[in-house]
């Protein structure tokens, strides 16, 4: 490790002329205006992007027959909190959230670990058949799941996995997506770092764990977030595999609660709001790992 030089970005000497603090005043004034403009543009864009979500929240506070009207009513009158109470009181929300959390966390952890492990094999090791195998991985992404889910279901049923959470974990954990994502990221990590570690006598497993993984925090963060969201919002998987109500996930439970003949749109929207919020919080926490400089620490400019 001794030869591994990892200066922090702050320690890197910055030529005085490039330091933003030393810019001439005219630049500073212009950049303040630009900043203000940038912010207002971003706020407008944010409002536009959030519009459907706002409509979801508004609709969840209406009575059912008020949800769809011509023209659209943006202010519910009266405000109905009943939908939220209904869902909490009459449904098994806590069970659904518990199941969904178990699934999301397990799948995400397993996917990140096995996916990045395999990705290291694909990107940093060279052996026969590697590229063909990798194309096989990606190729399966291109096959729509709906078309092979029945054979898969028959298979998992025969080994007794249907109607268990294991089925969903098994299904989601080994997707090619994570392998692909991590492999591409690993390839942008300079080979010199691994080489230096090898000279220091680190094994390949050691390099994966102590060099590559710590440098891949942004990729791990994005894989974690995407896997979490996908598992959280997955509907078709749980629909096919889970039957007993105490195994239901939040998407399955909400859909079932909303029922069939009665188009309870206000409740649908209440459920959607409730199912989005936890994910939004996770995202808010996770996005701070996208900070410039983590991966480039090891590279000398």
């Amino acid at each position: 490790m001794a030869t591994l030089d990892t200066p922090t970005p702050a320690a890197a000497p910055v030529p005085a002329t490039l330091n933003p603090l030393n810019r001439r005043p005219r630049d500073a004034g212009r950049s303040a205006v630009a900043k203000a403009l940038g912010y207002s543009a971003m706020i407008v864009a944010a409002a536009a992007i959030l519009l459907p979500f706002a409509w979801m929240v508004i609709s969840s506070l209406k009575t059912n027959n008020q949800v769809f009207t011509v023209p659209v009513t943006w202010i519910p009158d009266p405000i109905v909190w009943q939908n939220y109470l209904d869902i909490w009181a009459r449904s098994d929300m806590t069970t659904w959230i518990k199941n969904t959390l178990i699934l999301s966390v397990t799948v995400t952890v397993l996917q990140v670990v096995t996916g990045s492990f395999a990705a290291y094999g694909f990107s940093k090791m060279r052996f026969k058949g590697r590229d063909a195998l990798f194309v096989l991985y990606i190729g399966t992404i291109a096959v729509p799941w709906q078309s092979y889910m029945i054979p898969q279901f028959i298979m998992l049923s025969n080994v007794g996995l249907s109607n268990t959470l294991w089925a969903i974990i098994a299904l989601q954990t080994f997707s090619a997506f994570g392998v692909f994502l991590m492999k591409q990221y690993f390839e942008s990590i300079p080979e010199e770092l691994s080489e230096a570690a090898r000279i220091d006598g680190l094994s390949e497993y050691g390099i994966w764990r102590r060099i590559i993984m710590p440098l891949s925090v942004p990729a791990i963060a994005s894989l974690t977030l995407l896997m979490f969201v996908n598992t959280w919002n997955d509907y078709l998987g749980p629909l096919i595999y889970l039957r007993s109500p105490d195994l239901w996930t939040i998407q399955l439970g909400l859909k079932s609660f909303i029922g069939q003949y009665n188009a309870e749109h206000a409740l649908i929207m209440t459920g959607s709001v409730l199912s989005v919020l936890p994910v939004a919080i996770i995202f808010l926490l996770g996005q701070r790992y996208f900070v410039e400089g983590i991966a480039s620490t090891g590279v000398k400019g």
Partner: peptide, 21 residues
């Protein structure tokens, strides 16, 4: 036994019949 509502009922039933469950 509870199944899903709407068209999803037949999706689940098809899967279960195919797998013998």
């Amino acid at each position: 036994q509870e199944y899903a509502a709407g068209d999803d009922y037949d999706t689940q039933m098809t899967a279960d019949l195919a797998a013998g469950t």
